[in-house]
Design a protein around this nucleic acid. Structure first.
Length: 438
DNA sequence: ATCTGCGGGGGAG
DNA sequence: CTCCCCCGCAGAT
């Protein structure tokens, strides 16, 4: 092709706007699903990507009527925090997921903090010129275009799965949800009742995603089912503080409601053709720290970019000090699907870094994390919120959606990433959860 | 019980 | 006009 065409194509691929009459159809590589899109980013997903089809986001986004049936608009609801600003024993803050449904949200606000019983407070998102961050979804041809406007100015809430898990736990009195929560500290800690993830054959993996993001408590659960026991040891060097205090209460786990459908999780892990995605298997980052929100983000981003882990082997070793793990702790999203390859459209790919990997059952390892990349086409924004509190984390960060492979990915929001080095405990919990599996 | 998408309406700039 | 938000409905989870 001529350079000219190439240039114009390239420009088209990099400069489209969700409102354009025509969106690029010459997309070479689609992105991995991003669970925590932030800032003014755009992504092009395969129309086969389930998460994209569902317009998922780990941020609590509600549908907003923009009177345009072709473009779905969603605005961020922010995060529900403790009105007393309490912290868990491990120093974590409470960051609950606002209910999407108005009625449910009102009801939610009448409830009390799972940690201290204090009043809950909804922290609205004002990251887009004082208004909530908005996400736009548009299906066009073989792709699903995504555009985010604004940068979240609040911590990440727990993920949908985490919130569901928490609810599920509450429903089951027997389930020691409370104990678990407390243990973990964070409210969100609830874990999803993943059902037996491994059921069947999930070897390992339950989907990492879902599994992963399970709160630690569940992890126990997971552990129980998990095929591989040594995970923790192998994987994590957690600082004591992050480590689950005491024995993991498997009881809780056991009692968890099976509300969550493990099957679903499993499903996520599987490739469309039935194979399990390596990414699915991955494990928690080895670092003991939970990365936080940032990490997750990174992860997501990475995953988005990368996806290749399968194809490309990464480094098996962990390059980072435990304390600062790269953000990618959990792979967040990924699409389950077989993916079309995804590649980050926007930013050129950065360099891959290595990061913890999770061995997969098969033996492959994936790893990911890139120490950094620069390609951000996105204006880097300072992340005010979340990062401020070193502990803020919520579990949320993990990805749950699909399995991304962490492969190499590049990340574009470099700043964020860097910032993210602050990790969150919660993530660590999540890690714990995961690790057990292994 | 919630989530999610749709679409009617209203208000502000 | 555009953008934001509220509300209710209906189908899906």
């Amino acid at each position: 092709m001529e350079p000219r065409d190439f240039d114009s194509d390239n420009k088209e691929l990099l400069s489209w706007d969700i409102n354009d009459m025509k969106l690029p159809q010459n997309v070479k590589k689609t992105d991995w699903f991003q669970e925590w899109p932030d800032a003014y980013v755009r992504h092009v997903y395969s129309s086969e990507d389930r998460s994209a089809q569902r317009h998922l986001s780990s941020w609590a986004m509600r549908n907003t009527n923009n009177h345009n049936s072709r473009i779905l608009k969603k605005s961020c609801l922010g995060v529900v925090v403790c009105g007393r600003d309490c912290s868990t024993k491990d120093g974590r803050k409470i960051y609950l997921r606002p209910a999407i449904c108005d009625k449910a949200r009102q009801k939610q606000q009448r409830k009390s903090c799972p940690n201290c019983n204090g009043p809950l407070k909804l922290v609205p998102c004002r990251g887009h010129g004082g208004f909530p961050v908005t996400n736009f979804w548009r299906h066009d041809g073989r792709f699903i275009f995504f555009q985010s406007k604004g940068q979240h100015d609040h911590p990440k809430p727990e993920t949908k799965l985490e919130a569901e898990a928490r609810r599920a736990v509450k429903k089951v009195p027997g389930a020691s949800s409370s104990s678990s929560l407390k243990r973990k500290g964070s409210p969100e800690t609830k874990s999803p009742p993943s059902k037996k993830p491994n059921q069947g054959s999930l070897p390992l993996t339950w989907s990492f995603q879902e599994g992963v993001h399970l709160p630690a408590s569940h992890s126990g659960h997971l552990m129980a089912n998990a095929p591989q026991p040594n995970a923790l040891n192998d994987c994590l060097p957690f600082p004591k503080s992050y480590a689950p205090a005491g024995p993991v209460d498997t009881t809780d786990l056991a009692s968890l409601p099976s509300t969550l459908d493990s099957t679903k999780l499993y499903e996520k892990c599987k490739l469309s053709d039935g194979r399990i995605h390596s990414s699915d298997l991955f494990q928690p980052p080895a670092h003991g720290v939970y990365s936080d929100y940032d990490e997750l983000q990174t992860w997501s981003k990475n995953s988005a970019l990368g996806r290749n882990s399968l194809n490309e082997p990464c480094c098996p070793s962990y390059p980072f000090p435990l304390t600062n793990w790269p953000c990618d702790f959990f792979p967040s999203q990924n699409s389950l699907e077989p993916l079309p390859q995804q590649i980050p459209l926007e930013p050129p790919a950065p360099k891959p870094g290595c990061h913890p990997l999770w061995p997969n059952p098969g033996g492959d390892v994936y790893e990911e994390k890139i120490p950094m990349d620069f390609t951000s086409y996105v204006p880097s924004l300072p992340y005010p919120g979340p990062q401020e509190d070193p502990f803020l984390l919520t579990y949320a960060s993990h990805p749950h959606q699909q399995y991304p492979l962490p492969g190499k990915s590049g990340r574009w929001d470099f700043d964020e990433e860097v910032a993210c080095m602050g990790l969150d405990h919660r993530n660590s919990e999540a890690l714990l959860s995961l690790c057990p599996l292994r």
